[in-house]
């Protein structure tokens, strides 16, 4: 606080408004109850007696997105669920944060290869602030992830510097139709484009011949 600091009695604390707001924000992160799969059990364990996420001010699990600041996506997101994840994210008030918990949400995890129905990483659907890998991550790892979110909040400068509150949302929404390079008003041409794309991808994915 520079020149102001130490000018008053000891019981007076000086700070900036921004820091005060950030401090309040970081110490009352309200996560949303959003258990999807196995990782949700570890999230529950983090909230339960031994690990006690309440020590970090994030124990008030909210059932509705409208009261939550933090979405812990705990578990596998599949195509049927993706649109729901996106909608829940949109319903949360700003500023909002997302933790991708577990290998599945980081990038498909154990279902990467044969999971025809699994979204290969939740960052294709919502922006992710902190990735917590593991299958499932231990509760300590989730707590660490929470602390990284708190670090992020502490450094927020939206009041003074006008820094944007959230990271940009990915273009793939789960609602939209095909990306422009694959779609065409003419259905025949669109199919041709998609076939070419599929072929190229297949060639790329094929293992190199020795």
């Amino acid at each position: 606080m520079g020149w102001l600091e130490g000018r008053f009695e000891e019981s007076v604390v000086t700070t900036t408004l921004e820091q005060a707001i950030n401090w309040a924000r970081e110490s009352s992160m309200w996560p949303m109850t959003f258990g999807l799969a196995c990782c949700a059990i570890e999230m529950m364990a983090t909230g339960a007696s031994r690990y006690d996420i309440d020590r970090f001010g994030a124990g008030a699990f909210r059932a509705t997105p409208r009261q939550a600041d933090l979405m812990i996506v705990a578990g596998t997101v599949n195509f049927k669920m993706a649109a729901r994840v996106r909608r829940l994210y949109n319903q949360m008030p700003d500023p909002k944060f997302v933790i991708a918990m577990g290998a599945c949400t980081c990038g498909g995890g154990p279902y990467y290869k044969y999971g025809y129905n699994v979204v290969k990483g939740v960052d294709l659907v919502v922006p992710v602030d902190v990735y917590v890998p593991g299958c499932p991550p231990r509760p300590e790892a989730l707590l660490e992830g929470l602390m990284r979110i708190q670090d992020k909040v502490r450094a927020m400068k939206d009041l003074t510097k006008g820094q944007p509150l959230e990271i940009p949302i990915p273009a793939r929404t789960g609602f939209t139709h095909l990306p422009p390079e694959l779609s065409d008003p003419d259905p025949v041409k669109a199919v041709e484009k998609q076939n070419a794309w599929a072929k190229r991808n297949k060639e790329r994915a094929a293992p190199a011949k020795a």
Binding site: L36, A37, G75, T76, N78, K80, M81, R84, Y111, K113, Y114, G115, Y116, N117, V118
Partner: peptide
């Protein structure tokens, strides 16, 4: 089906 993770397909590939 909101958690369908293709376990049976995986089972016949590994």
């Amino acid at each position: 089906g909101y958690l369908h993770r293709c376990a049976e397909k995986i089972g016949e590939n590994v």
